[in-house]
Design a binder for these strands. Sequence first.
DNA 1: TTTCTGACA
DNA 2: TGTCAGGA
Length: 127
Amino acid sequence: MSEKVLRKSLAVLPMGTVMKLTSLSSRQIRYYDDQGLVHSKRTSGNRRLYSLENVDQILEIHNYLVEGMTIAQVKRVFEKQRRRKALHDSNQSLSDEDVREYLKDDILKAGRLYDDSDLKQQGKYLK
DNA sequence: TTTCTGACA
DNA sequence: TGTCAGGA
């Protein structure tokens, strides 16, 4: 693992910092955390600590939710990403099922981009 | 002061 | 999701 990835994985950001970085409420961040969508660490005093990688994930989760996905669906998307990465890391060949999953992801992504512009037209985007 | 959990609206 | 309580 490169040093760069290592730094991004370092959990050193407290709740207040993540709130500013994501412009989300602590309530929302804790909710994603409780749902197991992000894996924060804890200090000896039970305070949550997040990494820059976590911040990216949180923003991604929120985008999915804004686009109308449910928590369960976001979980599935993350699961696929995890499997995809594990597959890449182990450098295995692709099974037919893997190929189908890839295609499914691409279709989902295409649909997401379409919905994106749709939402923008409706003025639903705050940023 | 900041963050935590649980609970209610 | 916002917000309040009560504690660390």
